[in-house]
């Protein structure tokens, strides 16, 4: 099977545009899910009454349902309540809804790894609960959390591949369109795989490197 390079060159700008769109939505979604995750993990750690239960329900709902259904519900279902969101807003909210719980779990793991003596020392020198979180727990938890945060980022980036289902012109959508219009199946799929490799491979390698670094840091303790 020979490649139609001419076709590939002509379709390249479409893929480039789609890749940037994917990256933009993923970036905003991941940023929001980091915020949600941090808030949730602090609520869980502080055991804020009422809020704690709400956060637990949210985490279970978000972790045990597929992103595709979350998006369909947001995009098609909520318009019936009079809430109309653009495709891109839906995509970002959906990704943040899904990612928030994963990030919360990652932060929780990090917070739990901070040794008791650290927290007790903090309390004994009279730090308030907030100061304790801000100056003692978070800085230490962050290092331990980094690898799982990175893994979550890759997971969420991969999940963006279903944005095409709510009419966002992402990589999958462009591929489906091109297959439908030109029947250049092999070339379009080749470009799709290459595009995802370009985005995800460096991240994955970086993560492996980071994991090794953090493990060194743990040994140094």
């Amino acid at each position: 099977m020979s490649m139609n390079w001419e076709f590939i060159m002509s379709a390249l700008p479409l893929y480039e545009k789609a890749a940037w769109l994917t990256l933009k939505l993923a970036f905003l979604g991941i940023l929001a899910s980091l915020g949600i995750g941090l808030l949730c993990s602090i609520v869980l750690y502080q055991r804020t009454k009422g809020l704690e239960r709400l956060v637990r329900v949210y985490i279970e709902l978000s972790r045990n349902t597929p992103l595709l259904i979350q998006l369909f519900f947001l995009y098609y279902g909520l318009t019936k309540l009079g809430i109309t969101l653009s495709e891109q807003t839906c995509a970002i909210i959906g990704l943040a809804f899904l990612g928030g719980s994963y990030m919360a779990e990652a932060f929780r793991g990090g917070i739990e790894s901070v040794s008791k003596s650290q927290i007790e020392s903090g309390i004994s020198i009279g730090l308030s609960k907030l100061q304790l979180v801000r100056y003692v727990i978070l800085p230490q938890a962050f290092a331990v959390t980094l690898p799982s945060l990175g893994a979550n980022c890759i997971f969420l980036l991969k999940e963006t591949s279903i944005f095409g289902a709510i009419a966002i012109a992402d990589l999958m959508h462009v591929t489906q369109d091109l297959i439908g219009m030109y029947y250049q199946t092999f070339e379009t799929l080749f470009m799709l795989v290459v595009a995802y490799l370009i985005i995800l491979l460096p991240l994955s390698l970086f993560l492996t490197w980071l994991e090794r670094k953090v493990r060194y840091a743990e040994f140094g303790n």
Binding site: I154, Q176, L201
Partner: peptide
Amino acid sequence: RIIPILVWLFFVYFGVTNM
């Protein structure tokens, strides 16, 4: 782990069948 599952589904459904 690196390539999303949806891409794999497309790859087999459209690509492998075509090849």
